[in-house]
Design a protein around this nucleic acid. Structure first.
Length: 614
DNA sequence: ATAGGGTTAG
């Protein structure tokens, strides 16, 4: 390789740009270099190729490859490795493999093997990555911790767990696990393989934790729906004096969304502002979601409105927010608006839109969207879309059509699809069809106790005691227990989890006396139907929180979803929680939502005791 | 002078 003196300053400039991640500028500089007659050399290509890789430009990349060949730089190991890496990052592992195989030099290089292994692992070719790793060891090429860092992230599903554990073992044996990155990587592997306990063990065993360690654990809990664990760990992190970054806060916000923890969410928002992360698009989307799901649609929409770049995820978040609170028309309007701005919806968006239609009873609109999905966007509906459609038709009482839709499905219906039909049969009291749906659903999800309970309630509504008994016996035989339903109420930054039959909350006495007071209120004239017998007695069926106020809703225990329920009157209740009754509620999808205010949590049996979670 | 790696939203 000859170094042209005139090329040298160009190379330095190129290196500077690549170092600062100004990749398109780097490529512009490369083009200028050619135009001014400075031939690229072995010190030029790694930076130019890296820029192609970062921008994922496969065509420019192969053009550069031809320049590499033309200038005779191909044998250079640095250039070879850069080529392999570039092709991998541009998703063409085959081309990377070709470069690798055609150059016997690179086959002796650890770095080149590392690039190829990581490239295969990150392009869902884990098996190939593993066989390359084996070959590397057979050929006596030195394995190092970077090799592990490329290979381990290929374990992305529970089927990879045992292999991942082997990799953990060999990392320890070779001493690679002293590297913090390798430990972080292993921790993430356990999370992705669904082994959250092992992830936590790993976390606890780490004497030195970096920000990424905390983030990996927090996101891990968040992805597995363990929202209260996320909030606990976040507090612990703050206690340890570790400063959160946007990745941390995205995980925390997604858990606030799950819990309806509006107050913690607002605290996180203040933190975002004070840390200068205000323009991070991930955080903005997470905030929109959090506010929308917590019922603060005004705030969610305000954030959405001022976003300079609204991505598909942003639109899905705001549309989903309106949809889940029963504002189907607004959801559809926004959907139209999004289409008009030229954003193409994806499958997840259609799930959101279809469920918005079904929550709001927009049956025809839902049917239209479903048809448009395949016709206009060439998106094959999956079982998740069919469950929305079955729900939509079922709620509208069109059970026959719902059943026909299932029979016409190209993909195999899953438990959710039959479960939606079963739910619709409950609403419309169709025992015969319910039995068919039940048979299918328990074949697909034999351990989901919710469906047994639903079927038992259908029999019970039809006064079919034999049926009730039959289902109860089935549950007993299969040793199924109904997981206790819980509700959460957030107050002053703390989340309280409520379980039935448990009086461990430090304010249990106060809470009971307040509930009793509220129950009495519910029986006041105009608010209840005392004469209609025990089944129709109004009880507390929901509670929700917004700002400092607590909303409590009353309804009939046998109220069917879709019926309006009314919160009786404003009552100020003394006590630490500053209880209020607020607003009008509407039952949406078996959840009770206070309009314009809050996420609602239901109390199935009127009074629940309460467990202090924190 | 140059190459390979770990955490993020619906």
């Amino acid at each position: 390789m000859t170094t042209t003196t005139s090329t040298s300053p160009w190379n330095s400039r190129l290196r500077e740009l690549a170092k600062q991640c100004l990749f398109s500028e780097a490529l512009t500089l490369y083009r200028q270099m050619l135009r001014f007659g400075h031939p690229p050399n072995a010190f030029t290509f790694p930076f130019a190729l890296k820029s192609c890789a970062a921008l994922s430009l496969p065509l420019t990349g192969s053009l550069l490859h031809s320049h590499v060949v033309k200038t005779g730089c191909e044998p250079d190991p640095f250039v070879q490795t850069s080529l392999v890496s570039m092709y991998c990052k541009c998703r063409s592992t085959d081309d990377a493999r070709k470069v690798f195989d055609e150059n016997p030099h690179s086959r002796k290089l650890t770095v080149c093997y590392n690039a190829l292994i990581s490239g295969h692992a990150s392009n869902s070719k884990f098996r190939d990555a593993v066989s390359l790793f084996r070959r590397m060891r057979e050929e006596g090429v030195e394995v190092n911790s970077v090799t592990m860092l490329g290979l381990i992230p290929g374990c992305v599903a529970p089927v990879h767990l045992s292999l991942g554990m082997c990799l953990h073992g060999s990392s320890v044996k070779c001493g690679f696990d002293v590297d913090l990155s390798v430990r972080n990587c292993l921790l993430t592997m356990y999370v992705k393989c669904g082994s959250i306990d092992n992830a936590r063990k790993m976390f606890n065993a780490m004497p030195e934790k970096g920000l990424i360690t905390w983030n990996a654990m927090i996101s891990g809990y968040a992805q597995n729906g363990l929202a209260t664990h996320v909030l606990n760990l976040y507090r612990e992190m703050e206690y340890c004096g570790v400063c959160p970054d946007p990745v941390t806060l995205v995980g925390v916000l997604s858990s606030c969304t799950h819990l309806g923890a509006h107050g913690v969410g607002r605290e996180v928002e203040r933190r975002i502002e004070s840390s200068g992360f205000g323009s991070n698009p991930y955080l903005k989307n997470a905030l929109i979601n959090m506010y929308a799901r917590c019922g603060n649609l005004v705030k969610a929409h305000a954030i959405f409105d001022v976003m300079p770049e609204k991505s598909l995820v942003s639109w899905t978040a705001i549309i989903g927010g309106y949809g889940m609170h029963g504002h189907g028309e607004i959801a559809l309007e926004l959907f139209e608006e999004m289409i008009a701005t030229g954003i193409r919806p994806d499958k997840a968006m259609f799930v959101t839109v279809l469920s918005a239609c079904s929550h709001a009873g927009l049956t025809d609109e839902g049917l239209e969207c479903f048809a448009a999905m395949e016709k206009n966007y060439r998106l094959q509906p999956g079982p998740e879309h069919y469950s929305c459609m079955v729900d939509l038709l079922g709620r509208a009482g069109r059970l026959k059509e719902a059943k026909e839709l299932i029979d016409s499905m190209q993909v195999k219906p899953d438990g959710g699809v039959w479960g939606a039909l079963l739910g619709a049969c409950k609403i419309h009291k169709n025992v015969e069809l319910a039995e068919i749906a039940f048979e299918h659903v328990i074949e697909l999800e034999p351990t989901n106790s919710g469906y047994y309970v639903l079927m038992s309630n259908i029999y019970s509504d039809a006064n079919n005691l034999e049926g009730v008994l039959k289902v109860r016996v089935m549950m007993k035989e299969r040793q199924l227990k109904k997981e206790p339903g819980c509700s959460y109420v957030e107050c002053k930054g703390r989340v309280h989890v409520f379980l039935a039959g448990d009086r461990s909350h430090c304010q249990t006495e106060d809470i009971y006396s307040i509930l009793e007071e509220l129950e009495n209120l519910a029986r006041e004239p105009g608010a209840s139907n005392e004469n209609e017998g025990e089944r129709n007695k109004e009880q507390v069926i929901g509670v929700g929180v917004h700002s400092e106020k607590l909303a409590i809703a009353f309804g009939l225990l046998n109220t069917e979803p879709g019926t309006e329920i009314v919160v009786i009157k404003n009552l100020r209740v003394c006590g630490d929680c500053h209880l209020f009754i607020k607003s009008i509620s509407k039952i949406v999808d078996r959840q009770f939502v206070v309009r314009d205010a809050t996420r609602f949590h239901h109390f199935r049996n009127g009074i629940c005791s309460c467990k202090d979670y924190w």
